[in-house]
């Protein structure tokens, strides 16, 4: 569904991603793991169109549609094509209500009934959000904000959902909940690209994983294989 070929990402003089290839099959959960500054976030920010100074191809071909190169397109265009992204740090709009945050997620759509249906689905996925639908986003707890960020990413009828560090800063019990929900999102038929520092949880849920170090892929393979790999164990899973 998504094929990244020879991607380079630059921030001014900094060369954050140095030519990586990634393939995400339809219906899968693929994860990018690695330390801070490895280039994980830069990669998905490039796919979502937020970073302009990139080189390489980002070929997107959902079933039933022709292939498009996402490189060089604006974020709002990419969202319309069915690629949603939930950014690092959740980035809930604190002064908007929960309901408004969800409506904003559906900005690219005009089908009122469909939006309402998807909103109800988000509310049934996260009943706590429904209870707080009139509350301002900024008043939610960290966990609730993460649920809202996930729900919001589902509002644009995405085919591919990219999640940047969804477990960051959450209590362990909430981390588990977030990963359960990622599995649920996947079972709804959404392909998931997951960027994580929590390598253990990410590898457990992912069908395929890439390990990044300073802008390059150093290792890749099936999630369960990498979990057993001694190199991975030593560097990312605490021995």
């Amino acid at each position: 569904m998504l094929k990244v070929e020879g991607l380079h990402v630059y921030y001014g003089a900094i060369h954050a991603v140095k030519g990586i290839d990634i393939e995400i099959p339809e219906g899968s959960i693929v994860t990018l793991i690695g330390a801070n500054g490895a280039g994980k976030s830069s990669t998905i920010r490039a796919v979502s169109g937020l970073i302009k100074s990139i080189k390489g191809k980002i070929l997107y071909s959902p079933s039933g549609a022709s292939q498009t190169d996402l490189a060089g397109r604006a974020p709002e265009e990419i969202v319309k094509l069915g690629v949603a992204m939930s950014p690092e740090g959740r980035r809930i709009l604190p002064h908007l209500t929960v309901e408004e945050n969800l409506q904003l997620g559906a900005f690219s759509r005009n089908d009122k009934d469909g939006i309402e249906r998807d909103r109800d689905r988000v509310y049934s996925l996260f009943p706590r959000l429904k209870e707080r639908s009139w509350q301002k986003g900024g008043t939610l707890s960290g966990g609730e904000q993460q649920m809202l960020a996930l729900g919001r990413a589902l509002m644009c009828e995405p085919k591919l959902v990219m999640l940047d560090e969804p477990s960051l800063g959450l209590a362990p019990i909430l981390v588990k909940e977030v990963f359960d929900i990622i599995g649920e999102i996947n079972s709804l038929g959404k392909t998931v690209l997951l960027v994580e520092q929590n390598a253990f949880a990410a590898l457990k849920i992912a069908s395929y994983a890439y390990i990044l170090e300073v802008g390059r892929i150093v290792l890749q393979g099936r999630g369960e294989d990498l979990l057993k790999d001694p190199r991975v164990k030593e560097a990312y899973l605490g021995g």
């Binding site: 937020l50 604006a74 709002e76 969202v79």
Partner: peptide, 12 residues
Amino acid sequence: KDIETTRLMGVS
């Protein structure tokens, strides 16, 4: 409040 996130929501 947040231009970048708003773009990610599909807003031009």
